Amino acid sequence: MDRINLKEQLGRYRTPYEEESSFIQDFLELTEDPLAYGRERLDGHFTASAWIVNRKRTHTLLTLHRKLGRWLQLGGHADGNEDLLEVAMKEANEESGLKSLEFVDKTIFDLDKHIIPERPHVPEHFHFDVRYILEADLYEPLIKSDESISLAWVAFDSVQDVIGYNPSILRMLDKTSKSEILL
């Protein structure tokens, strides 16, 4: 999926979740900026994530992010790649070591615009995260990357206990339980 396809998908994207709906236009506008796919765009840029679930839809794979110190879905920076579908798969594979990863659907699963705190040499900025849903074998061995403190399959009914309150992850969890594409 390149910039044109992303813009088309964003134009068709609808969500019943008010917060998510409120920033679709921001994502659409960002597609017009050729610098939006690189982290050099300091006020905000695209990232891509993978919401990974097992085939029976009972668990999701989460990482305890080293820099942020929070449990999150796997994903990362586009680093100039305008194919965010490809970025999501690459990041999921690099951060988990899973070879069984497959897209459940190649359309956008979720969108989230969130602030990244300032760090040395990096100002506070926004991530415009485009998320896709993937599935993998729950029993395949995991290989943790340097970006993670930990990596774990978390049962759906334990996600909130593990992550605390993170509305975007809870939204993806809710979508997973309601989605017809997952059956």
Rank of each mutant, 00 (worst) to 15 (best):
M1R: 06
M1T: 12
R3L: 08
L6S: 05
E8F: 07
R14M: 06
R14G: 02
T15Y: 00
T15L: 01
E18W: 02
S22K: 13
Q25G: 11
Q25V: 10
Q25R: 13
D26S: 14
F27H: 03
A36Q: 06
A36E: 08
Y37I: 06
Y37H: 07
H45M: 06
T47V: 12
T47S: 10
A48I: 05
S49T: 08
A50D: 01
W51M: 09
N54F: 06
R57F: 09
R66N: 07
L68A: 14
G69C: 00
G69Q: 08
W71P: 04
Q73D: 04
L74K: 00
G76C: 01
A78G: 10
G80P: 10
L84W: 01
L85F: 03
E86T: 05
V87L: 00
E94F: 05
S96G: 09
K99Q: 14
K99E: 14
S100P: 08
L101T: 04
F103W: 00
F103N: 03
D105Q: 09
I108R: 01
D110Q: 15
D110G: 10
I115L: 15
I115P: 05
R119S: 07
H121S: 13
H125D: 09
H127G: 01
H127P: 05
F128W: 13
Y132I: 04
I133A: 04
I133E: 04
I133W: 03
L134V: 04
L134M: 15
E135V: 03
P141V: 07
S145W: 02
S145G: 01
D146W: 06
A152H: 09
W153L: 06
W153E: 07
W153K: 04
F156Y: 15
F156S: 06
V159L: 06
I163G: 07
N166R: 15
N166V: 13
P167I: 08
I169E: 01
L173C: 03
K175Q: 11
K178V: 02
E180C: 02
L182W: 07
L183V: 08
